[in-house]
Nucleic acid binder design. Structure first.
Length: 626
RNA sequence: GGCUCCGUAGCUUAAUGGAUAGAGCACCUGACUACGGAUCAGGAGGUUAGAGGUUCGAGUCCUCUCGGAGUCACCA
């Protein structure tokens, strides 16, 4: 154990530097200096030093040149901070070098700390809502992005101290599922997922697609009818083509003219009246969908703590409307509809209750929020929903604020960009969706093919091999999606699919596999690692790794604060990259002496653990071999 | 049209207002009789859409222009 181990070594070195700089500035120049405002970065590799302090902000108080200021601060730092061994100044940047003793001590503590990167429980409860599928069709690429974001965000929030409740609200009612139901009832001829061998959620989705085909055919036929022609003549405006007219007219037609449309509405009505036959059918088809979803969720490795069903929540929110009316937050129009005026918040007027007293989408969300608060006791809520609903959430949160809901300040919309294909948006009706199950199967097969080509993992048991390759495939897919900043729109090219080389999940997994190989040998040869702490010749590649390891807790904290898992993904990549370089440049098992060997093995071990933890936060598992 | 978001190398992308904008893919050239080559090193590729402004310092902040997306339902 290094001599100064009494020192609070677990304190972040960057905080130490910030405090010391602030103190030095106050001592030298008298002015107050907030330590948290002191900029400390890792020093770029072309300069000597480990960390760099930006001194430009201090020249106002020092009334000296940047270089002179840096020299003065540096002199004090090197005197006051035991971890600093030297400093230099380049163009107003103060570069400091950190002692080997600090790094050794840091490694020792980190390697022994199973909670490295985790923070103590903060006693706060946060709900994360994600996935939230419709039950009329299987999950697709867009859901995958949503699910991975929700899952990794949950893991990250958990790591920084929250008690996390993972939920989804399942949209199990409405016109869409009725379309599947009606279609199956009319044309299904008693077929089932079992009788056809089709995965059960896909089975239900197929009937939805069939319905859409039928309705399109009906519409096209109707357009030739006398009624349609008369309508066209009376409503066609100059500049509007016949085609555009019918495109715009489609909704109205569906609601007022279509035969299939009438049947769907009738079914929905029956459902709302609790018609036994309709409910039985509804339960049967939703049951099929859930069985299919379960399989996909299992493949993705996600679970939920609490499920909500729209069929049970869609009537909620009316009490809130009452409440808001009595508080004067809402106002009622003559026709009886209830509104809120949000124009002073840069938003618009928004209806919260229809004239006939039924609720709209946002009413339900208002009610659900309050119910969840009462039921789960969460003070924070994260909604993982695509950015096309940005405005909706602005309105929702603003209304909850005005209602003085106790959790109103803890609401967050984790908005992410839609996943699109090179040809544009995915459309179920046009069959241009990238199906989740297909994609999963494809990427696991890709990992399998690549593995065969390399032939590295012959000789392990088939089950172990399958599991490893599943992890590689899923790692590739998940990392591919999570590494991109959530708010960015994503274009997914199924042709090019997912890479396994370069900035990818498997690249990171591969560094773990290398380390895993080393550790197995350590165990087998019973190597004594305690000599590591006598090592005293730190190489740049080793310092890179140590500094990267040191960053981990701050990265997790920042990712939680920003609700941005891509920060963790990029961190893992950088760490793995440094490790590959370290591996290439330096000998580990064949190191010059036993201290060096023990140190490099311990360093490798710690890198492996942090990589595993970091990837774990993204829902990515590490293979033992690949 | 109003409001919101986005525009970084051929493509995918990184960069709490800080040093010469950092990676990956694709392309070219190299590297183990050594711990696993899904690796490593090097080359080429950028007026960060454009123009002003603030700042010691701007991809990042402000204004305008251009281009793209989303939204503006008593739909969900």
């Amino acid at each position: 154990m290094p001599a100064h181990s009494e020192h609070n070594i677990s304190m972040n070195i960057i905080n130490t530097l910030q405090n010391a700089v602030a103190q030095a500035v106050e001592q030298l120049y008298g002015g107050p200096c907030d330590p948290s405002k002191v900029m400390v970065n890792t020093t770029p590799s072309d300069f000597t030093g480990d960390y760099s302090v930006v001194v430009f902000p201090f020249v106002k108080i020092s009334k000296k040149s940047p270089d002179a200021t840096a020299l003065e601060i540096g002199a004090i730092l090197v005197q006051n901070v035991s971890e600093i061994t030297a400093f230099n100044v380049v163009k107003g940047f103060l570069n400091v070098e950190i002692s080997a003793a600090f790094w050794l001590n840091f490694l020792q503590e980190t390697n022994a700390n199973p909670d490295f990167g985790r923070q103590p429980r903060n006693g706060k409860k946060v709900m994360v809502e994600f996935s939230s599928p419709n039950t009329n069709k299987p999950l697709h690429m867009g859901h995958i992005r949503n699910i991975l974001l929700g899952w990794s965000c949950s893991c990250i929030l958990e790591a920084v101290g929250y008690d996390v409740v993972k939920t989804q609200i399942i949209n199990d009612r409405g016109v869409a599922i009725c379309k599947s139901m009606l279609s199956w009832k009319k044309f299904g001829d008693g077929q089932t997922p079992d009788s056809t061998g089709i995965k059960s959620d896909h089975f239900v989705g197929d009937w939805y697609v069939l319905f859409e085909q039928k309705i399109r055919a009906e519409y096209e036929a109707w357009q030739q009818s006398d009624t349609a022609k008369t309508l066209l003549e009376t409503h066609l405006k100059p500049g509007l083509s016949e085609k555009d007219f019918f495109k715009d007219f489609k909704n109205k037609w569906f609601n007022e003219y279509a035969e299939l449309g009438a049947e769907v509405r009738e079914m929905l009505l029956k459902w709302e009246e609790n018609d036994p036959e309709t409910l039985t059918l509804w339960k049967k088809m939703n049951g099929w969908v859930y069985a299919g979803f379960d399989k996909t969720y299992t493949d993705l490795g996600v679970t939920f703590d609490h499920l909500y069903y729209e069929s049970k929540t869609y009537l909620l929110g009316k009490d809130i409307v009452e409440d808001g009316l009595s508080k004067g937050v809402f106002y009622q129009k003559e026709d009886g509809s209830v509104w809120i005026d949000l124009t002073d918040a840069g938003l618009d007027h928004k209806v919260v209750l229809r004239a006939d007293g039924t609720s709209v989408y946002i009413t339900q969300d208002l009610g659900t929020a309050r119910m969840r608060f009462q039921e789960l006791g969460c003070e924070q809520f994260v909604y993982v929903v695509a950015d096309e609903q940005n405005y909706h959430f602005q309105v929702l949160f603003e209304i909850l604020r005005r209602l003085d809901e106790p959790y109103a300040e803890g609401l967050h919309h984790l908005s992410y960009g839609l996943v699109e294909l090179p040809t544009g948006r995915m459309k179920t009706r046009e069959g241009t969706v990238v199906d989740a199950d297909d994609l999963i199967a494809e990427v696991v097969k890709l990992a399998d093919d690549q593995s065969k080509e390399r032939g590295e993992i012959e000789g392990i048991s088939p089950t172990e091999k399958t599991e490893n390759l599943r992890r590689v495939g899923m790692g590739a897919l998940k990392f591919f999606i999570i590494k991109v900043n959530p708010k960015k729109r994503m274009i997914f090219n199924p042709e090019e699919s997912v890479d396994l080389q370069g900035q990818t999940g498997p690249y990171i997994q591969y560094s773990f596999v290398r380390i895993n190989g080393l550790m197995q040998r350590v165990e087998k040869e019973n190597i004594d690692l305690s000599l590591a702490w006598q090592y005293n010749d730190l190489q740049p590649q080793e310092k890179d790794l140590l500094a990267a390891l040191h960053d981990f807790p701050a990265i997790v904290a920042a990712a939680a604060k920003e609700y941005d898992p891509s920060m963790v993904a990029n961190y893992c990549y950088t760490l793995a990259k440094s490790y590959h370089r370290f591996w290439h440049d330096l000998s580990i098992f064949n190191a010059e002496n036993l201290e060096t060997k023990a140190f490099r093995l311990t360093l490798s071990n710690t890198v492996g653990k942090v990589l595993q933890r970091g990837m774990g936060l993204l829902g990515i598992e590490m293979p033992g071999r690949m």
